[in-house]
Amino acid sequence: MLTISAIPAFNDNYIWCIADPHRHNALIVDPGQAQPVLDHLAQQGLTLTVILITHHHPDHVGGVKALRETYPDCRIIGPADSPFKGSTNPIHPGDTALWEGITFTSMAVPGHTLDHIAFFTDDTSITGRPLLFAGDTLFVSGCGRLFEGTPAQMRQSLESLRQLPDNTAVYCAHEYTLANLRFARSWLPQSSALAEFEQQCEQARANNTATVPSTLAQEKRLNLFLRWDDPDVIRVAESYAGEHKLPINCPDDVFAAIRHSKDHFRG
């Protein structure tokens, strides 16, 4: 049976490893550092055969060169139109990547960066449900900063992810959950659902347990950045936009107000 593990890196990154214990092969997602991956592979007796890359930022690709030197036959699958030029198998949105009989479909999700892609599979043999590697596009109760794209691009990217099955397991690349929830609670302080989830996540972190993965159903219910059409969120966005002289005429504007507020949040 295939397994999936989080390899902690830097201060708050997760490098994801899918392993086939019977064939001793491994797939790695977004290796920003090589040594934690090398240590994990050695401990588990695994050979790295595929690396998936979601975007070009150093904390996602910084370990690729060293890993390829150790595993020269490893395929590196990443966005074709990207500042990252280390892919052996560059792919375009809609293309697929195959590993151990599992097909991952590449989805264009520009916003955080323009080259950003996500990898989705409806194969349930890994976790018992569909699986999404979202990189820095969709976090637990948050989304990535807009370093290169526009609010409209990011909202449209998140809209495409919002259309995936509700039971999809969402594997993002950072442990940002508690900070995201503090912000969400500042917008919706009366939300008992957010308060309860925050308590659960605080307990998980106190026990050194990851808050990732979440599910798409949970994100649609709690994540402000997927709720640009929620009346409660719209009301707060309209108030915030008025205070900061921002336009508020369409869903893109609502999303932009949420993102602007998070970017300036000091809670």
Rank of each mutant, 00 (worst) to 15 (best):
Asn180Glu: 11
Leu178Asn: 11
Gln153Thr: 09
Ile126Asn: 08
Ala184Asn: 11
Arg145Phe: 11
Gly94Asn: 12
Leu114Ile: 13
Leu161His: 04
Asp166Lys: 03
Pro93Tyr: 06
Leu114Arg: 14
Ser141Leu: 15
Glu148Thr: 03
Asn167Cys: 12
Gly94Arg: 10
Asn180Lys: 10
Ser186Tyr: 08
Asn167Trp: 03
Pro165Lys: 06
Val170Ala: 03
Leu161Glu: 04
Gly128Val: 04
Ala134Phe: 08
Pro90Cys: 04
Asp122Asn: 15
Met154Asp: 14
Thr168Glu: 02
Tyr171Gly: 13
Leu181Ala: 10
Ala184Cys: 12
Arg182Trp: 07
Met154Pro: 13
Ile102Gln: 04
Glu175Val: 01
Leu181Asp: 12
Phe139Gly: 06
Leu181Lys: 14
Tyr171Cys: 15
Thr103Ser: 14
Phe120Ile: 13
Leu188Thr: 02
Arg162Phe: 03
Pro93Ala: 10
His116Met: 13
Asp95Leu: 02
Phe119Arg: 11
Leu164Asp: 09
Phe139Glu: 02
Ser125Trp: 00
Ser87Glu: 04
Ile117Pro: 00
Phe120Ala: 09
Leu114Ser: 13
Val140Arg: 15
Arg162Ile: 00
Ile102Gly: 06
Leu138Val: 09
Trp99His: 08
Pro165Trp: 07
Arg185Ala: 09
Asp95Lys: 04
Thr177Asn: 12
Ala184Glu: 13
Gly111Trp: 14
Ser141Trp: 11
Phe147Arg: 13
Leu98His: 09
Leu146Thr: 08
Arg129Tyr: 11
Phe139Pro: 07
Thr177Tyr: 09
Gly135Leu: 10
Ile117Leu: 03
Thr127Ala: 05
Glu175Thr: 02
Thr121Tyr: 00
Pro189Arg: 00
Ala169Ser: 15
Gly86Cys: 02
Thr137Gln: 02
Pro130Glu: 04
Asn89Phe: 08
Ser157Asn: 01
Arg185Phe: 07
Ala173Cys: 12
Gln163Phe: 00
Thr103Val: 15
Asn180Ile: 03
Thr105Val: 02
Thr127Gln: 07
Trp187Gly: 03
Pro90Phe: 05
Gly94Leu: 10
Val109Trp: 01
Met154Lys: 14
Arg182Lys: 10
Ala169Leu: 10
Trp187Cys: 11
Asn180Leu: 06
Ala134Val: 12
Arg145Val: 12
Ala179Gly: 15
Ala152Tyr: 04
Gln163Ser: 07
Pro151Arg: 06
Ala173Glu: 08
Leu158Gly: 09
Gly149Glu: 05
Ile91Gly: 06
Ala118Gly: 12
Pro110Val: 00
Gly94Glu: 12
Ser157Pro: 03
Arg185Cys: 10
Leu98Glu: 11
Thr88Tyr: 01
Gln153His: 10
Asn167Pro: 08
Ala134Asn: 13
Pro93Trp: 06
Pro130Ser: 04
Asn180Pro: 11
Leu164Gln: 08
Thr168Ala: 00
Thr137Val: 05
Thr124Val: 13
Phe104Ala: 05
Glu100Val: 05
Phe139Leu: 01
Phe139Tyr: 07
Thr121His: 01
Thr113Lys: 04
Asp115Met: 04
Thr88Cys: 01
Gly86Tyr: 04
Trp99Ala: 13
Phe147Ala: 09
Ile117Ser: 00
Cys172Val: 11
His112Cys: 10
Thr113His: 04
Leu146Trp: 05
Ser186Gly: 03
Thr150Ser: 13
Val140Met: 09
Ile91Thr: 07
Ala134Pro: 08
Leu158His: 10
